[in-house]
Design a protein around this nucleic acid. Structure first.
Lengths: 155, 155
DNA sequence: AGCCAGTTGCAAACGGTTTGCAACTGGGTG
DNA sequence: CACCCAGTTGCAAACCGTTTGCAACTGGCT
């Protein structure tokens, strides 16, 4: 069965250079400010989606305002440098996305300890296409996350 | 290809009798009050998930408080009489669930006009099982919704 | 060096949801 | 059938994540 994804996503966790990130910003006529560099630095070192509050907590205190993080994430999302995920707990989470990558992928989240595993599998293309055709929809994508009990929490 | 769901869900839209609903409530030692009957009455006539505010708007005005709806939906969800869905717009939606049904299913939502279509397809069981096994997780489920442009909105 | 669009911090506003509390009531009991 | 109380309700305030108005500030161009 073919289950690969139509979306380009490199499941490499190699960190992007900060310089590469800032040059992407500059290219979009965005300023490289202290808060932004600090936020990118945090995201860069984090393999899993972070909430704005988590980013805030990791910032050297006083480095920047929470509102600034919200604004930065909005901008980074619009530029496609960051992808927004929703684990259903009412707080958006963000993950850095490589250049040329659309960041589409899914997670397996422990419902007890919130551990997150990145998942390679995706919803089968052909079924999604069938769903779109059957209902006459175009530009169909999906939001998909898995939930369960992680090995640690089963003990 | 086998894509059916391991979860029992009858995609019948036949309305449940109000009497059946209230007897389920009574069985759980819950009181049948005016607000609750009115809420069930609304849900019963609605094929698609409703937000609490939408339910509120359909209630004869003054029938009950918004907080009461929130409390009712929490209770109904706990009793398994209602299923919560999340279309990613920050408002929970609820759909009545038949007895013996777990309500697990998915939707295709128009990103422009918010039209909702119920989807029969589900994430393939065997892949989900593989994901669970590979990562040592148990009790794995998923949250899955599709988004696209409906036929009307393509014009 | 100077300028200005873009950015920031702060505080207030916002929208969905929850909660404390006092008044009320469904439905079982005597 | 009247009584009683756990469960329920309305109201208002609290909550929490997120957005926004505004005045002060600054990156990076000229």
């Amino acid at each position: 069965m073919k289950t690969s994804c139509q979306h380009r996503h490199r499941h490499s966790h190699k960190k992007q250079e900060l310089a590469a990130l800032t040059s992407r910003l500059r290219r979009e006529a965005r300023k490289i400010t202290g808060p932004r560099a600090a936020i990118l630095e945090i995201l860069r070192h984090h393999p899993h989606p972070l909430t704005n509050k988590e980013i805030f907590a990791q910032l050297p205190k006083g480095e920047c305002d929470l509102a600034t993080i919200y604004r930065a994430m909005q901008m980074l999302e619009k530029l496609g440098m960051v992808k927004r995920f929703d684990f259903g707990d009412g707080a958006a989470r963000f993950e850095l996305v490589g250049e040329g990558d659309d960041g589409h992928h899914h997670h397996l989240v422990c419902t007890r300890c919130a551990e997150v595993v990145e998942i390679a599998e995706c919803f089968p293309e052909e079924i999604e296409r069938r769903i779109a055709n059957t209902n006459g929809f175009t530009g169909v994508t999906h939001r998909l996350e898995f939930f369960g009990l992680c090995p640690e929490c089963q003990k």
